[in-house]
Amino acid sequence: MIELYPAGKRYTVKNDWLESNLGFSFGEYYDSSNIQFGPLRVFNDDTVQAGKGFGIHPHREAEIVSIVLKGQLKHEDNLGNAGIISRGNIQRISAGTGVLHSEFNASNQEEVQFLQLWFLPNEKKLIPSYEDISYDIEQLHNHLLPVISRTGSDRVAKIHQDLTLYLSKLEDKKTLNFRQEAGRKIYVFNIEGEISINKDSILKSRDAARITDTHEITIHGNQDSFFLLIDLPGGEF
């Protein structure tokens, strides 16, 4: 089954420095029918104005992934990590028993757009850790490029959950196939352009699809597109 979640139906939080479009219940937005999809618990599509950001705040028991789409995001934490990530980088924080961090737009000129995903970890009370990687943008073309996985590897961030997150830039009229083990789930988020899944399910910019009981899909570029796909474990979370 492929369930579509149009961009326009997401809950939006907006103030003078932040626009956050929420894929799942988060903060003031609480919908008991939209808590999570497998271990995927948060999917925030954020735009932060120049020079603004989130001051020091804590996290625990979450695997937090940030994917910058535009601009620069500055990170600092109490583990001693500090740096700036931009398009082509992936940041993974394992909050575990607790981490304090801040996130600011590193630019005083332009906004930063980024996706922030939180996954439930496969183990509680982990030692907090941080990683950022650079993926090869050239490898995205008409290819599902893994950028996060349970095992991690060169240019693939390691996450404490049985999942793989892929990014892809699919050209107009090109097609990709994806197959996973039975019993698992697929989450697709179309970042830019328009794609169709198994012909009939069309995702425009920022639309999402939650896929269960369908373990082989064909993704077609209806125009030049940029999307992410997550191969998620099945079962109860």
């Binding site: 219940s25 988060f26 903060g27 003031e28 937005y29 609480y30 618990r41 948060v42 705040h57 996290h59 625990r60 028991e61 979450a62 939180w118």
Partner: peptide, 10 residues
């Protein structure tokens, strides 16, 4: 004292 939800700080 504040008690907040850990996911989104409600």
């Amino acid at each position: 004292l504040m008690i907040r939800h850990s996911i989104g700080s409600r």
